[in-house]
Design a protein around this nucleic acid. Structure first.
Lengths: 345, 345
DNA sequence: TTGAAAGCGATACCAA
DNA sequence: TTGGTATCGCTTTCAA
C-alpha cells in the first residue's frame, strides 16, 4: 500500500532474453518447448523467467501467428434459468480441461443482443463459438458464415446446422408429453409459458403437445404466453391468470419446471388438490425435483451432458478430429405424480 | 454474394483503405469516429466497410495501444450452486452493458485451479479480474499484485482487500442465525456442510453460529463436513449420516438451502415432523423457497445485487471514477417456518 | 544450436 | 484534412 505505483509491470520476452544473454528467438523456443536448444540454455532462460516473473502476452502470440485464440464464445439466454447454467457449466468444465476459456454472452433471449455480442466477440479472434438456438438475425448469420471458425448451435437439435449442432428434438418432447397426458385421461389441457425471440424451443414443444393432444381427441384450449422471464413467480401468477379466464381445465403444462412449481403453489394455495383437482406438468427436470416429496411430472434433459457434448464437438473440430456434425442428446419423460396415473401402465 | 468461397474472409483495415483510395490512418480515424476527415471520406470508407464486411481485429488494437482488453476475468467456484450463477448473471449483465465481456473461470473450489486460471487469463491482458473469496495461493497473490489491473474480491466482505471487495460478513450471518436458533429454544444443534479450499465462507458462518450458540448456553455438538459438492443429494445423505451418529439433536443448520432441502426431505421420509420433531435451517435463500408451502428458515443474500455491485466497482475503477474500495452488501435473516417460533417475537 | 530480420493489424506521432 | 513511419510482443523464415 506504500507506493501505489500503478505502473505496468509487464516483462517482455526480450527482457527475459536479454537477462539470459540469448536472443529472443531462443527464449521463445524454450518457452514453447519447441526443442532445438541446449539444456543449459533452457535452464538459464527458465531461471530468468522465474526471476522476472515473466507472463507471456498471448495477444501478441495470436496476433503474430495470425491464428485464433483459445477463447470460445458461449452465448446463453440467461443464467436465472438453472437449465442454462448447467449447460454452461458442462461447456466450461470440458473446455477448461483443454486449455480453452469461455467468453460469456448473456443474450437475454433477443436476437439483437446476440448479434451485437457476436460482432464484438468475433473481433477477439475466438477459436470457435457456441450459440443457443437455431435462429439468428440475418446479419449475425452472415458474420457467422464468414467467420471461418467452428460453430456449435445447441439446445435445438438441428439436422442442417450452420456448422455443428447438439440438442434435443423439442417437438418430440412436447408430443410425448401430450400423448402421455392424453393417456392419463386428460382432454382439456392448458399451457403457461413466456414468449421471446429465442423461446421458440418452448413454442416448438407446445406445438408438439398440441399435435398429440388434438390427435388424441383433446384440446389445448387455453394458452398463456407472458412476456416475462420463465421463473417461479411467473408460473404462479400465470396460473392465476389462466384459471381466472377459464373453467374445466384438467391439466396445465408449463414451459419449464420453475414455472410448474410456481403453478403448483398457486393451485395449492387455492385449496385445489394435485393431481386430484388438476394435473401439473413441467419440463426440464430441475435438480431440486428429485428431493421433493411429490415428483413433478416433467421431461428430463441431460443438461450437463449437453454442455459437455457441445464442448467435445468444438474441441474435436479444433484439433481436426473426425466428428459428426449433429447430435441428438435425447430426453426422457418423467411420469411423476402431479398428474393422474396413466391408464396404460 | 457471387463468389462465396468459404475461405477465411478476414479483411484488414489496409484493404478497406485501399478500396476506398485513402490511407489506413484515415480509415482508422473514420472507424474510431475520431473526427478530422471530410464527410465525403467518411461515407466512402464506411461504404467499403459494409461492402467488404470488415470486422476490426481488436487483438491488434489492444496490442498496438499497449492497453488492456475489454475482457474481465470472472472466477466462480461452480455454477451448480444457484447462488453463484446468480452472482455471475449480475456481473455479466452489468459488464456487458458497458462493452465488457466476462471470461469465465470455474475453479471447482480449489486454489490450485484458481491459480492456473489466473495465470492463463492474465496472459490475455484483461481489463480487470473478479475473484470469489479472499484466499488465494501465494503465487496467485503475487501475480495479482503485479498485474496492475483492478481486482474485485467478492463473496467475503473484506475490509483490507487486495484491491477492492464486496460481499457479506459470513461470521455475522452465522452468528445471527445462532442467536435466532437459541432464541427459538434450541440448545443441541447440528451442522451439515462440505469442505473445500474455498468453502471457508461456509466455515466462517459455522464459526459464527458456534459462537452464538455457545454464548447462549447451547452447543453445536455434531458437525459433519462432507468432502463433496453442496447439493440436494449431499444434504439428504449428510442428514442421514448425522442422525445415525447422534441423538437428541433438536435442529440442523446447513451450509446452504439446497442441502437444507435435501435434509428436509430426509427427515420427512423418516416420518419426522418439521419443526415439531426437528428444526431445519438453510442459508442463501434460494428463489424456489418463495413458492414452497413452508418457508425455509434461512438467510437472504442479494446475489444479483452482489454481482452488479462487483461489476460497478470494476467499471468505476476502469473509468477512474471515485469508488469505495470495499462494500458490505448485507444479508437478512429469514425466520421461515422450519424451526420453532422464536420466544421473543 | 542460435540469431537477425520481416511482419501480423492496428494506433501514435509527426509532417505535409 | 490527410498520410508516412515507427511501434507494440511475439513467431515465422531464413541464414549462420
Amino acid at each position: 500500500m506504500a507506493e501505489k505505483e500503478f505502473k505496468n509491470n509487464k516483462v517482455s520476452l526480450s527482457e527475459v532474453a536479454r537477462a539470459a544473454g540469448v536472443s529472443k528467438m531462443t527464449a521463445s523456443r524454450v518457452l514453447r518447448e519447441e526443442g532445438g536448444y541446449s539444456e543449459k540454455t533452457r535452464a538459464l532462460v527458465m531461471e530468468k523467467v522465474d526471476e522476472l516473473g515473466y507472463l507471456p502476452n498471448r495477444l501478441a502470440t495470436v496476433f503474430a501467428g495470425d491464428k485464433s485464440s483459445t477463447f470460445v464464445g458461449v452465448a446463453i439466454p440467461d443464467l436465472g434459468n438453472e437449465v442454462f447454467s448447467q449447460v454452461l457449466e458442462g461447456i466450461d468444465r470440458k473446455l477448461g480441461a483443454f486449455g480453452h476459456q469461455s467468453v460469456l454472452g448473456l443474450t437475454q433471449h433477443t436476437l439483437k443482443e446476440e448479434e451485437e455480442w457476436i460482432r464484438t466477440v468475433l473481433s477477439w479472434q475466438p477459436a470457435g463459438l457456441i450459440l443457443t438456438g437455431r435462429y439468428h438475425s440475418p446479419r449475425a448469420t452472415e458474420m457467422l458464415k464468414n467467420a471461418g471458425i467452428p460453430i456449435v448451435e445447441i439446445w435445438d437439435f438441428n439436422s442442417s446446422p450452420l456448422d455443428m449442432s447438439v440438442g434435443i428434438n423439442h417437438f418430440d418432447s412436447g408430443f410425448d408429453m401430450g400423448r402421455y397426458l392424453i393417456g392419463c385421461g386428460y382432454a382439456n389441457i392448458g399451457y403457461v409459458g413466456t414468449s421471446h425471440d429465442t423461446a421458440n424451443a418452448a413454442t416448438t414443444r407446445l406445438d408438439g403437445l398440441c399435435k398429440a393432444v388434438e390427435g388424441g381427441g383433446g384440446a389445448v384450449a387455453k394458452q398463456l404466453c407472458l412476456h416475462d422471464t420463465a421463473t417461479y413467480y411467473t408460473g404462479y401468477y400465470g396460473t392465476e391468470q389462466l384459471l381466472a379466464g377459464s373453467s374445466g381445465l384438467e391439466c396445465i403444462f408449463y414451459q419449464n419446471d420453475a414455472m410448474a412449481f410456481g403453478g403448483l403453489q398457486y393451485v395449492k394455495s387455492k385449496g385445489m388438490q394435485v393431481p386430484g383437482d388438476i394435473g401439473i406438468a413441467g419440463w426440464g427436470d430441475l435438480p431440486i425435483a428429485s428431493v421433493l416429496p411429490k415428483r413433478l411430472t416433467s421431461c428430463h434433459v441431460p443438461h450437463l451432458k449437453l454442455g459437455q457434448a457441445a464442448a467435445e464437438m468444438m474441441l474435436a473440430r479444433l484439433s481436426n478430429e473426425p466428428m459428426e456434425n449433429c447430435r441428438d442428446i435425447g430426453f426422457s419423460l418423467i411420469p411423476g405424480s402431479t398428474v393422474r396415473g396413466s391408464d396404460h401402465s
